[in-house]
Structures are given as C-alpha cells and as structure tokens.
Simulated assay, not measured.
Amino acid sequence: MKLDELINKYHKQLNENDLYIWNYISKHRKECETLAIDQLAHKCNVSRTTILRFSQKLSLKGYGELKVYLKLDNEKSKENVNNVEAVCDAYNEVIKNIKEKDCTDIFELIDKSRTLYVYGIGMVQSSIKKEFKRTFLTAGKIFYDLSGYTEANAIVDLATDEDVFVIISVSGENQFIMDFAKNLKIKNIPIISITKLKDNSLAKLSDYNLYTSTALIPSIYNDIDFESLTSYFILIEILFLKYMEYKTQKNKKEEKHEIGNVD
C-alpha cells in the first residue's frame, strides 16, 4: 500500500498539523526520504511527537516505517526512459493491487443495493463506464450509466441510502464530481471511487476506493503527452472476476447451510 493510499484511507483522522506535515512530505518526497524525525519536525515547525503520531495515524509503527514507505514510493516513481517498460510496470502494479485487495465489503454492498449507478465526466470516463456496465451485466448486475451534469443532479434527489454510486475520475479533483459526491454523502449514499493511486479529494470522501496506476509518456512529435489508461479496464476485469469468485463461494456456503438444516 502506498503512502497516498494511506492518506486517503485515514484522512478523516488527520488534523491540521497532520495535513501540513503530509503537504510538506508530498512536495519534498526525495528530501524527506533521508531526513531524521527531528529534521522533519523542524521543517514542519512541529514537535517530533507530532511527526510520530502522524505516522501512527496512518497505521504505521513509527517514523521509520513511514520512511520505508516513502523510499519504496520514490523508487517506483523514478523516471523510466523505456516507455514500454513504464506502461507494463503500471499494468503490473494495478494487477497486483486489485488481486491482493479484499473486496468483500464492496461486493456485499453491490449485492444488497437497490439501484446501482456508475458516473463519470469526459470521453475517457465514458468508455470506462460502458465497460464497467457491460462487464457486470454478465453477472446479472445492472449499473445505470449516468451522463452529464443535469442528469446527475436529478438523480441525487431520487437516490436513497439503499443505492450505491461508482464514481470514476482520473484525477479525483473535478469540482463538479466533488460537489456531486458531497451531495450523495449528505444523504448517506455509499460511494465507490475509481481514481489514480494518489492523494485525491474524491478518494478521501468515498466509502470504498479502487485505484489504478497509469504511465505518462512525454510527446515526441507534438505537445500532447500520452497517458496509458488501459489499466482502468484491467482493474474492471479483475474486479469482475473476483466478484464471480465471491458469488461462487457464497452460493457454496448457502448450499452447505441448507443441507445442514435438512439433516
């Protein structure tokens, strides 16, 4: 698990000092990798105890483990001149993360929900939504594909806490998406977010987070960089396969329970 993911997961437990510390670390990742706890405390104008508590709020044993996570993140984010290798590394990271992730809570939420929605803004998000909808339809799960601003605002008024929204955002910082998500949270409507694995506002606000890794390839022929987004489709496919395994195991347990009652 990356530091950005821990920040998203435990964001509600962080106070103003904690967020200031993280802001400094995120902007000086390479420098902080070598700083002693007293040095970081001095740069953030807080006590060493505050740094230690910040680390512990992220479920880490202490500052030493935080530095280990930071070093691993820095090693993974080093510029890779081999574009093919960079893209393959991004795919492998997504596969590893979703394969190891316990998605039971997400699947239980999907199964018990009255209505399922998938929402995102933009051409890329539109393709991802369609794939999400198409894939889960195979399992008999119908996700209603929401498009645009007007439709989203209208649905908020109709939705209840028995529904669930899957919100797709590459950056996790789109202002309308954030306002939309906040309106859902006011009504206690569960949100599953799909974003890039980084510190982002949507992930912090969501009940459940799914992450992708992408590779940004600098342009050679024009001013437009290429960002590989296939990892979103890889994530959806493996998530679906895990859901099918979950359903299979659930059905076996129910059958075993029924046989036990007959006996």
Rank of each mutant, 00 (worst) to 15 (best):
A139H: 09
I234P: 06
L3G: 03
I21Q: 00
I121C: 02
Y20G: 08
I168L: 02
L158C: 10
N83A: 13
I51F: 07
Y232P: 03
Q175A: 11
P218E: 00
S171D: 02
D4F: 10
F132I: 06
K250M: 14
K78R: 11
L40D: 03
K61V: 11
I142K: 15
I142T: 14
E31G: 02
E79I: 13
L205G: 01
T135F: 00
K67G: 07
F240T: 05
A90S: 13
F233K: 13
S77W: 08
E79V: 14
I177V: 09
Q175W: 06
D207P: 10
I106T: 02
T150I: 14
E173M: 00
K129Q: 14
L3Q: 04
N200G: 00
L58P: 09
D38S: 13
I194Y: 06
V166I: 12
S59C: 09
L197N: 13
I155L: 10
Y63D: 06
K112T: 09
K57V: 02
N222S: 14
D89C: 12
K71R: 14
E75C: 04
Q13G: 07
K9S: 10
E16C: 10
Y63P: 05
H11M: 05
N174D: 12
N261F: 15
K101P: 01
Y149Q: 07
I95S: 12
Y211N: 00
H28D: 01
T49F: 12
E108F: 08
K76A: 12
T115F: 11
T214A: 07
G62S: 08
Q39V: 12
K57E: 07
F176V: 04
T160N: 01
I167V: 10
F132N: 07
S147R: 08
E31R: 08
F136P: 01
Q249S: 13
A36R: 15
K67Y: 11
Y24D: 08
L202G: 01
G120Q: 03
F107H: 04
R53P: 03
F143C: 08
L66K: 07
K198L: 10
V84E: 13
Y243D: 08
L40W: 05
L3E: 02
H42E: 15
T50D: 00
R53S: 05
S113K: 06
